[in-house]
């Protein structure tokens, strides 16, 4: 018999797999401009507000559906899940809650998928799972994906969304930064292409490791991309920071990313980049 949590997880994924369709279409208010629009209309617009182009937070699986060829996604390493190595107070419960609310088992979804029929290794971080924070399981999954891509000569396309390292795993979560960076390096040394797409928010340990290591780094508009948290900096420096601080546009201006791409053009742009590398992948 399915437990209640299992049932909740299952139902969430069933909706996801079938392509989220809202039986009762209702209006939602854009958190950026405040204008209301029907959910399905926003959905048809790739979850971008038609008025102000605010990019809604989307799940990993919605992302995969938006970007890659229909039904081409094949999931890998979904048997790897977080443990509680430090027996950190409240951690197990938090994981369980995150599983129910996100419908995912861990903060990243990995696998292979094709884009314009070019096969890629893909990782997509799930912002709904403890803010995409990186613990041992997440590090291991991304690491294995790069190793898989290396063995199979595949390009890697990754989407980051993370609040940083998962503090409930202490030093082990910090070490994932080194571990994944090493795997990215191996893939790169073997000539592999790695395109990283930074989505809102990409911060902390993920920024200070694989998010900043792409051969080509793209960001969604208006996404927060930074290392130290804005509020931490404000309280340390005792001053308030401008609105655009640590936004993609700011990071582009300072030379740390290649491009800002609107979500509605993301699949096309990624496809074009892949095609331009056709002689080497």
């Amino acid at each position: 018999m399915l437990s209640l949590t299992e049932l909740l997880k299952k139902s969430k994924n069933t909706i996801e797999n079938g392509g989220r369709q809202f039986a009762r279409d209702e209006k939602v208010k854009c958190p950026a401009c405040g204008k209301e629009e029907y959910r399905n209309t926003i959905k048809e617009n790739n979850m971008v507000c038609p008025f102000c182009e605010h990019h809604y937070k989307i799940s990993a699986r919605t992302r995969i559906r938006q970007v890659f060829d229909k039904d081409s996604f094949h999931e890998l390493f979904d048997n790897i899940e977080s443990a509680d190595p430090l027996e950190f107070k409240g951690y197990k419960r938090r994981i369980e809650k995150a599983r129910i609310s996100s419908g995912e088992k861990e903060g990243v979804v990995c696998g292979t998928a094709s884009l314009n029929k070019v096969k890629c290794a893909v990782f997509v971080m799930e912002p709904g799972f403890m803010m995409g924070s990186m613990g041992s399981a997440l590090g291991e999954k991304v690491c294995r994906l790069f190793e898989y891509a290396c063995e199979n000569h595949l390009p890697v396309i990754g989407f980051t969304a993370s609040g940083g390292a998962r503090m409930q795993e202490g030093i082990l979560s910090l070490m994932q930064m080194a571990k994944v960076s090493g795997a990215v390096k191996k893939h790169s040394n073997a000539g592999g292409l790695y395109i990283c797409v930074l989505t809102n928010p990409t911060t902390g340990g993920v920024t200070a490791s694989f998010a900043m290591l792409g051969d080509i780094i793209i960001a969604e508009p208006n996404a927060v991309v930074g290392f130290a948290g804005r509020r931490v900096i404000e309280s340390t420096m005792k001053k308030s920071l401008p609105d655009d601080f640590q936004k993609s546009e700011f990071v582009l201006e300072h030379g740390f990313i290649d491009k800002i791409v609107d979500r509605r053009e993301l699949s096309m742009t990624l496809g074009r980049i892949l095609n331009l590398h056709r002689e080497v992948i």
């Binding site: 443990a83 190595p85 690491c143 070490m175 080194a178 090493g182």
Partner: peptide
């Protein structure tokens, strides 16, 4: 050395 650091559950 770094590759082997981490504790997680592998469901197999």
């Amino acid at each position: 050395k770094f590759r082997n650091i981490g504790v997680f559950a592998e469901k197999k």
